[in-house]
């Protein structure tokens, strides 16, 4: 089955983003295709490369990055959500004259149209975040 996964919860504040990760990894392991991962609203915090975890805690952002890289997934953080929350790629940092960028390189900033398009192309859209 062709799936799109929508994450609109931040990592660590609740279990939702972790559940989204576990669902995605399990779906891939079961032979399903993930058409797109879309991170919206507080979900964009999952793409912050500057997040640091204690050594004995699960590093969800690192786990997402490995999953995306291993399976060459299309992972998009909503650009308007991301900019509001200080998640910038190099291009946006330059555009808004900010001193740094922090979007993890496995992710791409793009618009909500990518979620709508993914909804049209997928058999199921599964949302995580209350």
């Amino acid at each position: 089955m062709k799936l799109t996964v929508l994450v609109h919860a931040a990592p660590y504040s609740s279990q939702a983003a972790y559940s989204a990760y576990r669902f995605s990894a399990s779906a891939l392991a079961a032979g399903h295709e993930i058409y797109r991962l879309f991170f919206y609203y507080d979900g964009v915090h999952n793409s912050n490369s500057l997040s640091i975890q204690a050594q004995d805690e699960f590093d969800l952002i690192a786990a997402w990055r490995t999953l995306i890289d291993t399976h060459q997934l299309d992972a998009i953080s909503c650009v308007s959500s991301a900019l509001k929350r200080g998640i910038l790629d190099a291009q946006e940092a330059a555009r808004y004259e900010k001193s740094a960028s922090n979007l993890a390189e496995e992710f791409t900033l793009s618009g909500l149209g990518q979620l709508v398009e993914a909804s049209m192309m997928s058999d199921r859209v599964v949302s995580f975040g209350g």
């Binding site: 609109h8 919206y40 609203y41 618009g111 909500l112 149209g113 709508v116 398009e117 909804s119 049209m120």
Partner: peptide
């Protein structure tokens, strides 16, 4: 606002 933005995007795609 986040939900409204999703609706407007979907409307642009004529869903």
């Amino acid at each position: 606002k986040a939900c409204l933005d999703m609706v407007l995007s979907a409307a642009v795609f004529e869903q």
